[in-house]
Each structure stands twice: as C-alpha cells, then as structure tokens.
C-alpha cells in the first residue's frame, strides 16, 4: 500500500529529471539517452497500472527501435557537435511563461474535477493481459489494426524514397 506510493514518487522524480535532462543537455546524444531513461520509467508506470503488454511494447518499440533510430541519425549527421547560436532574447522567457500557463491550467483541472480523484481499485485478474488485449485487438479493433499496417508500409516507403540519392541528377548535394 505505502510502498507503492513511495515507488510512484521515486519513479516520478526520475521521469521528470530525465525529461529536464533531455531538454537542457548540450549534446544531442545525451538528450537521446535521457529520453530512453524517461521511456523506461514510463514503462514501469504502465506495469504499475496493470498494462504489461503496453509496457513491453513501450520498451521494445519506443526505448528500443525508435530511440536507436534517433541515435543512428544523430551519429550519422554528426548533430551532437552542432552549436546553436544565440537566439532572440524574448523567446525563452515567453516559452517559460506559456509552459507555466499550461501547467496552471492542468492543475486547475486536477483540483476542480472531483471524478479524477478516485483511488484506483484492484483490477480483475485478467485485466490488461496480452490475451485479453489480443482478443479486443482482433475483434473490435480489427479494421484500425489492419489500417495501421498500411500506415507503416506507407511510412517505410516514404522514408526510403526521401533518403534515396537521386540517380539522374548524380546525387546533388
């Protein structure tokens, strides 16, 4: 009971620190590694919330495949060495202000709506099991599932066509 609350707060601190580290790292590789840490902690939150299938998908797809793609592109471009120039001075304070407004709005919602304050009850034994997710995915959500495959195919073809060197113009640079 109490241990779960302590685990939540420790993980929340890790997740928020990792997000802050991603934002303020000078080196893009460090940013990517901080983001992987953040994704891993969110995967543990998914486990706490009774979603083991989503947690494993998070680790393999997000922390694995997507972040490896990010790291690969960062290394390919040498983007970790790119220095960003001094920008206009008013942008950063304005961005901070807008973010604070967004946070204040969320806090207002949390504190004024009573229905989000419900304490989570222990779920049914098979809640969130891969079997029940699979049953739902292949019955009620079969069409979206198939459309997702077409989307992934389109993204794959699009990425290859974009990056392919143009042979006719001799790979202009």
């Amino acid at each position: 009971m109490n241990g779960e609350l302590i685990l939540f707060f420790v993980l929340a601190i890790v997740a928020i620190s990792a997000a802050l580290g991603m934002l303020f790292s000078r080196n893009a590789v460090y940013s990517a590694l901080f983001l992987i840490l953040n994704f891993a902690t969110v995967a543990v939150f998914f486990l706490l919330l009774g979603a083991p299938f989503i947690a494993m998908a998070q680790v393999t797809v997000y922390a694995g495949a997507i972040m490896v793609l990010f790291l690969f592109v960062i290394m390919l471009l040498g983007a970790e060495q790119i220095q960003h120039q001094a920008r206009r001075g008013w942008q950063r304070p304005l961005a901070m202000l807008l973010t604070l407004v967004l946070l204040a709005e969320s806090a207002y919602l949390i504190f004024t709506r009573s229905d989000v304050l419900t304490v989570l009850q222990p779920a049914a034994a098979d809640y969130g099991s891969p079997q029940s997710i699979g049953m739902l995915l292949f019955s009620e959500y079969l069409l979206p599932f198939e459309v997702t495959s077409i989307l992934l195919l389109a993204a794959m073809v699009g990425a290859i066509v974009l990056v392919k060197e143009d042979k006719k113009s001799g790979g202009q640079k």
Binding site: I16, H84, L94, A95, L102, V116, L117, V119
Partner: peptide, 27 residues
C-alpha cells in the same frame, strides 16, 4: 493504491516539459 490524479499530474508535467522543449530548442 494511488489516486488517478497523481498520474494526471505527472502526465501534465511531462507534457508541459515536452511543449517547453519544442518552444526553446533550435535543434
């Protein structure tokens, strides 16, 4: 057990940090 509002707060903070990153970074 943990109230849903804790997850709501954590999610709001992470979302705000993401929005801040879009606004302040140039890379």
């Amino acid at each position: 057990m943990i109230p849903v509002s804790y997850y709501f707060a954590l999610s709001a903070i992470l979302f705000s940090l993401g929005a801040l990153g879009v606004l302040i970074r140039r890379n």
